[in-house]
């Protein structure tokens, strides 16, 4: 299967490069790096687009009020 083949090859390369250059980690080619990066950001952007739950707004509002009251009483 293609998937298995790819993974096996990746492991072989990993071990080879470890053997020859122990101080350096293997690096992906730029194209693969970009594809991984794009997917990661797309997934992340979707999370960032989610509306802020009210609990956080409420929490900060409450603290504002508390602080405001403290200031007034001083």
């Amino acid at each position: 299967m293609t998937v298995d083949k790819g993974n096996k090859l990746a492991r072989v390369v990993l071990e080879n490069s470890r053997g020859s250059t122990p101080a350096t980690d293997p690096k992906l080619d730029t194209g693969s790096q970009k594809r991984i990066g794009d997917q990661l950001r797309a997934m992340y952007d979707e999370l960032m687009q989610q509306p802020v739950p009210d609990r956080f707004r409420d929490l900060l509002d409450q603290l504002d009020k508390k602080n405001g009251a403290k200031e007034g009483s001083q």
Binding site: T2, V3, K5, G6, N7, L9, A10, R11, L14, D25, P26, K27, L28, D29, S32, Q33, R35, I36, G37, Q39
Partner: peptide, 13 residues
Amino acid sequence: RFRLASLLNVEDI
């Protein structure tokens, strides 16, 4: 990145 690429089979062979 390397592990993700391997898991997702991102690389062309």
